[in-house]
């Protein structure tokens, strides 16, 4: 699949030669009596690279993504976006810098695919404005590029899981952001659809987009991630390349089952060694 996105780079908003995201000692919990779901996380996410946040269910991956987005406010620490504190940007500016593909959820209203994708243009519309000609053009172009044009008027609720995830990705792409956050983009998808999503992400990365995604499946990360963050119980356990990070000892420890790592022709494959402990 080839994508010809013509991103309008807004250098006036951020300078992507800077580190895309810097997290400084981030701590977050949902209620004072709870444990921290994100605990003392400090890290740098480089520009124009693919970073995978990997960890077991409940490790705090989604919370971390929501903190980067600004939906959750950390109790301590701060997030820098291209070297500038997150709070120094307006909400509208952030939505022009960062897009999110959230986990698949049920949609109570059956928007058509085009309507759904057009919503991605909202960061560029004034509060009382409805989509303009240019917004329709951009939405249609992205639908063409992702090979979704034939679904344009189909209700989102009638799509397959793979098609729906592609539509959500299209919505984030019309947002024309430098940074793309994805929460479990391949979960619940079959191998064909996983491969399609990952190839689009790789293509986007080649075009200079900074990609951060969460996954609980190490084998998804091995395909496209330039660097991997291993997360467990709210903490970053490891941070490095796939080759460095994916060792049997480290993975066995965070998933708490024996894990086997195979290396073939530079590819890393991760699998369970046996059932149970």
């Amino acid at each position: 699949m080839i994508i010809y996105l013509e991103l309008t780079y807004r250098n006036d908003l951020i300078n992507m030669n800077h580190t895309a995201l810097t997290l400084e000692n981030i701590r977050f919990r949902y209620a004072p009596e709870d444990n921290y779901v994100v605990d003392a996380v400090s890290l740098e996410i480089p520009s124009r690279k693919v970073t995978a946040i990997l960890g077991p269910n409940g490790a705090g991956k989604t919370s971390l993504l929501h903190i980067i987005l600004g939906l959750l406010q950390p109790h301590t620490g701060q997030v820098l976006v291209a070297g500038k504190p997150h709070r120094d940007y307006s909400k509208r500016e952030i939505s022009q810098i960062m897009g999110l593909v959230s986990q698949i959820d049920t949609i109570p209203f059956n928007f058509s695919v085009l309507e759904c994708v057009l919503l991605g243009r909202s960061p560029y519309l004034d509060p009382f404005q409805t989509p303009r000609g240019i917004d329709f053009q951009i939405a249609n172009r992205v639908l063409d590029e992702l090979d979704l044009s034939h679904l344009r008027y189909k209700p989102v609720t009638e799509l397959s899981g793979g098609e729906r995830q592609m539509v959500h990705l299209a919505r984030a792409l019309v947002q024309e952001t430098e940074i793309l956050l994805l929460d479990e983009p391949t979960t619940h998808l079959d191998l064909g659809n996983q491969s399609r999503i990952l190839s689009v992400l790789r293509e986007l990365s080649a075009r200079g987009i900074t990609i951060v995604f969460t996954t609980h499946d190490p084998n998804v990360a091995t395909f496209i991630a330039d660097s991997v963050l291993l997360m467990d119980k709210g903490r970053i356990v490891e941070h490095g390349s796939v080759q460095e990070t994916f060792t049997e000892a480290k993975l066995s420890a965070i998933y708490n089952v024996p894990i086997q790592v195979e290396r073939q022709n530079g590819r890393v494959m991760v699998m369970m060694r046996k059932l149970g402990n």
Binding site: G70, L71, R92, S102, I107, F109, L119, G120, S122, P127
Partner: peptide, 23 residues
Amino acid sequence: LLMRWRLNLLSLNDAAAFSLGAS
């Protein structure tokens, strides 16, 4: 009527609406 486009955003889940700039 004036805010009808914003209304679409508010019908999404919180994370998606927020990421599209909704307050």
